[in-house]
Write a protein that binds this DNA or RNA. Structure first.
Lengths: 144, 144
DNA sequence: TGCGATTAAATCGTGCACGATGTAATATGT
DNA sequence: ACATATTACATCGTGCACGATTTAATCGCA
């Protein structure tokens, strides 16, 4: 049951990250947003969703919470009022740097070599790509 | 970022399963419960939690929903009134057989050979084991 | 026997994740 | 130009997932 192994590994990562992040008042998905913005720079909600494989119905409330805690700013785009630009605030950027220490701790917890982790990551990425293609195929078939 | 790859693969599996299961009025975690009970037979909430890496705060409401839809029974143990035994009902057992067709479809969607899937599953299981040990170590350190 | 400690579920509050839908702004075609 | 379609984001309802706490039953042990 590959699906269950992925599910259980996801639960395990989530719990470990919550433990490591609870001093920063950050959830694991919020941590991912912070990292995505640090690596990709400011971007709109849609682009953030493409990076994290999430949609606005998940991101909008999450980003509002992060805005409320002062980590990101949300600004309507002047050129296209439909678009909302998300950017790290100064405290957000600072926190993004501070939590750089967390992923190495997680890597250590895996008890795996860097080589093994890289290989496993690549396999998971291609697996997820295939699953997404299949899911999208099903969706498109239902529409037409 | 191994954690993100696991996270994204989990999202992808969840979406694919929701698509495949939505004709059965089942969520993905409910599907996992059904399979666990089919494979392990009737068991109490704690044992189910060990099998699925979940606790009563997640399982109790989920099992109540499955009881409401007639798939499982919940019975206080006569010998120890604290424990609640969970068993498949006849419709639940029937549905568990019916959805046996779903995992092969998922395997097909992975576009991976059985050998690759088995190897990836083993790697994920040992990874999750290591993460759980580390998380439990952190928890115990905080208690003492 | 009886009382404090432990255990198994349940409850509560918060935050994702997602399908379905709504709203407002922009793009497109005639 | 203007109605229609499309797009970007937001809203709503449901169901996990989890930390913290509660309740009730059982255990341990003097």
């Amino acid at each position: 049951m590959i699906c269950f192994s992925v599910y259980a590994a996801g639960l395990a990562f989530n719990r470990l990250y919550q433990s490591l992040l609870n001093g920063f008042d950050l959830t694991y998905p919020q941590f991912l947003v912070l990292v995505a913005l640090q690596q990709g720079g400011a971007m709109n909600v849609g682009a953030l969703g493409e990076a994290l494989f999430l949609e606005s119905n998940t991101l909008t409330p999450l980003l509002k919470r992060m805005e409320a805690s002062g980590l990101v700013s949300r600004q309507r785009d002047k050129m296209d009022e439909r678009v909302v630009q998300i950017a790290l605030t100064k405290p957000g950027a600072k926190l993004a740097n501070t939590i750089g220490c967390v992923p190495p701790q997680v890597l250590n917890a895996t008890h795996m070599s860097l080589r093994e982790v890289v290989a496993l990551t690549a396999n998971l990425n291609s697996l997820a790509d295939n699953l997404r293609q299949h899911t999208n195929g099903l969706r498109d078939a239902n529409i037409s």
